[in-house]
Design a protein around this nucleic acid. Structure first.
Lengths: 224, 224
DNA sequence: GGAATCAGGATTGTATACAATTTCAAGCGC
DNA sequence: GCGCTTGAAATTGTATACAATCCTGATTCC
């Protein structure tokens, strides 16, 4: 019997819990400082404590909860301040990766990305926006020459992606200005202009932060 | 059928498994690409699979192993290249934190740190070196105004500290030049010279990387 | 002969039971 | 009244059993 690969198919236990807890945090279901007991989370998601423990470890690695020995998980606050901190670190990592990757991307891959974004700009396949955005960031990171830096960036990509999913439709559409920002990054990279590419990436992430800020504020207002 | 390896006599606990695996990696007991089965690690440390799984998750968060669904843990290579990447990311984070913290440290705390390092310089309590080093980095990070940045730096501090413990005495003594580097950082911070403080931190971490590089090379030679 | 198929073993994922530890409030002595 | 002790409830840490999934190697069909 042949089973399909199914790498990112369904939220397999742990991942489902992780995104569920983040969902609750974003919607204001829980507040920072609250203590999550394993049993309560297990009951909430109808699973045993074992996958809950692993999900809490992952959430701790994401910085969403703080784990204390024999005391359980304390939810960290999440609001504009935390979003700002997330983007500050993400920007630090990605700008550096962009500088390192400038002039390092295979021309074919560069051209493929550029034409994809230009196609998006013409209104084709608008739902592909986030996937393309993620592809661009991943491609740049993986050509920085520093695998660990790429891994750290991946952690933040996953974090932002999880927040995006948890926030639902509020963050759904990619902005047209964002497409231009992406093209700007690609152009600077193809020119081998490290500083320019880094600056373009910083500008892009600053814009993304503003969008995310509006989104979580809308969520909080809607949740009350 | 090979005989099972003798259990390592260590107190039970997740942390010991983590440092034990890193120890094995540093000493060349395992090689990158090798697959660690939970059962084997459990037997090696004389514990059940439950704490082993959590240790592997922590090692994955550290970037020392790669976890694949239903496939187990694949050890990542560890050598000069990986050390260089670790220090590149650590430097990126800490230099930024130092810039942000410059002029932000309470004078009392600054003076306390400075006098501690000056005391160290005179030969007092040489064993306190690493603890003081860690304290300086933690203090700077916690005054950067970005708690998430501080948390990321803490992850790297723990990683380096774990490597240090795993490497044993090779890395035991703090260098006298390192004390001067620390004082330089403190001076620039007290002057509120963000760029200078960041540059001093970068210089310090570059030196630390060189020391660590020599240490793991010595370990590998000794292990063969 | 080569590739797809398919058991059987090996390994991870989850559930549950129990041990160790912490928390918290009531009881006690001062 | 205040602080310390203490014991029970609550919670986390660990061990074990079982289910689900994956890997391996021999088999079969073309």
């Amino acid at each position: 019997m042949k089973t399909p690969p199914a790498p990112l198919a369904q939220p397999a236990g742990k991942a489902h819990i992780v995104s569920g807890v983040i969902h609750g945090l974003l919607q204001g279901r829980w507040r920072g400082g609250e203590r999550l007991t394993e049993a309560a989370v297990a009951q909430l998601f109808s699973v045993s404590r074992t996958p809950v423990r692993e999900a809490l470890l992952e959430l701790a690695a994401m910085g969403m909860v703080q784990l204390r020995r024999n005391c359980g998980a304390i939810l960290q606050p999440f609001g504009p301040q935390q979003l700002s901190e997330i983007y500050a670190v993400r920007t630090l990592l990605e700008v550096e990766a962009t500088r390192l990757a400038a002039g390092n991307l295979p021309p074919a891959q560069l051209e493929s990305l550029r034409s994809a974004f230009e196609s998006l700009q013409k209104g084709n396949l608008p739902d592909e926006g986030w996937r393309l955005d993620q592809l661009l960031h991943t491609t740049i990171a993986s050509h920085s020459g520093n695998l660990r830096l790429a891994a750290e960036i991946s952690r933040y990509t996953i974090l932002v992606q999880t927040m995006r999913e948890a926030a639902g439709r509020v963050l759904s559409g990619i902005q047209s200005t964002s497409i231009e920002e992406h093209l700007e990054i690609l152009n600077r990279i193809s020119e081998g202009d490290a500083q320019g590419a880094g600056a373009a990436m910083r500008k892009h992430l600053d814009q993304a932060e503003q969008s995310a800020l509006l989104a979580i504020e809308a969520l909080h207002i809607g949740g009350i």
